[in-house]
Structure formats: C-alpha cells, structure tokens
Amino acid sequence: HPPSSTVLPPSLPPYFIRGSIIQLADGELKRVEDLKTEDFIQSAEISSELKIDSSTVERIERSHTSPNFAVVQFSVGEHRTQVSVEVLLEYPFFVFGQGWSSCCPDRTTQLLELPCTKLSVGDVCISLTLKNLK
C-alpha cells in the first residue's frame, strides 16, 4: 500500500510558543514546555474518543515543493500503517520519553523559544487516533 498522506497546518500554531497554557484532560494547566509523556498518556486514558498511538519515524526528506518544509514518514500504530506528513521544518512533534523534537530544532527554538531536540529516524512520536476506530 502506498503511504497515506496528510498535510499539517502550514503555519506554526500559537500553542507551540513557549509559555502557552495547555489544559490536560483532567483540567490541570501546564505550560507547553513542561509537558511530559505521562501528561499525554493520562489525558488520552481519560478521553472517551481519543487514544494515543505510537508513530515511529521511518524517513525524513526535504519537501519537493518548498525548501521550508519536510516530509516525515511515520509507521503508525500496531498495524504499522504508513502515513507521511508535510510540515514546516520547525514543526515540533512530541517524542515518547524525550519531549519536543523537530526536523530543525534550532529554528524551533529561535521561532517558538520551545526547547527542542532533533527529530530522527527511529524516534517514536505521540499521535492520536479515534478509540472506536475499527
């Protein structure tokens, strides 16, 4: 099967800016830079609709359409479904046990002031699917 393709928002959403206030599923408020893996897992456990999936980075390429974009190919969930997303180089993903990571962490830190590490092949990112998807 060819990879299914998704285009994430072309701009950087405001909630990735350091200091942004994030509400967890239990109502607790945290700054985006303080979020931990457990926060996402526990929030998903409370959620009636969403569940956490593991998305392993399989490939990272520069986009053919724009030098500011990268195409990241993930293997998602237990079925290892191939999904590729086209994102800005500085778009942050949350890596299990590690935290925010992007294709170009220097730019992420510069633009968003969000502490960030380099997203690499083999990293396991947090993603969401519907709980009742069958």
Partner: peptide
Amino acid sequence: NVEPRSVPVFPWHSLVPFLAPTQSD
C-alpha cells in the same frame, strides 16, 4: 501593577497530530 488578563488555554490534544491509520480490512 497590571494583572494578567485572560490567557488563551489550549486543549492538550491540539498539540498532537491526528494520524488516523487507514484500515485495510
């Protein structure tokens, strides 16, 4: 002193990409 005004609060799930796998069954 200026008290902080209402600050936008974002739900946790907006930070996570929604990658719904396509089912091939």
